[in-house]
């Protein structure tokens, strides 16, 4: 190992890069694998209903699905616009 290599090795190792990439990928694949297929459609339709009454943007709503041993949770999160900004 040359002196140059020695200094190079203080950079991020390829193994830790691999781990980081895998953790992100695996988490994403697990969540998309487990969630019901109607979720994107549900999110779209809910947004349409809410937009009838409240002026919210496309990203104001998030739907997530979680599953553990004895229950399934459908979590719906709507961020309403700031009251102050709504005032004319």
């Amino acid at each position: 190992m040359s002196l140059l290599d020695y200094f190079k090795s203080s950079k991020v190792s390829s193994a830790s890069l691999a781990k980081e990439r895998l953790q992100i990928l695996v988490a994403h694949e697990r969540s998309s694998l487990n969630q019901p297929s109607y979720l994107p459609q549900l999110q779209k339709e809910l947004l349409e209903v809410i937009q009838k009454y409240v002026n919210v943007g496309q990203d104001a709503i998030s739907v997530s699905f979680e599953q553990d041993e004895n229950q399934e949770t459908l979590e719906l999160n709507i961020t309403l616009p700031d009251l102050i900004t709504k005032k004319p």
Binding site: S9, S13, S14, A15, S16, A18, K19, L22, Q23, V26
Partner: peptide, 17 residues
């Protein structure tokens, strides 16, 4: 190779799986 940071370690793989 794990020691050199070139390969995922046992702990890394266990953390992920």
């Amino acid at each position: 190779r794990v020691k050199l940071g070139e390969m995922l370690s046992v702990e890394d793989v266990q953390d992920i799986l």
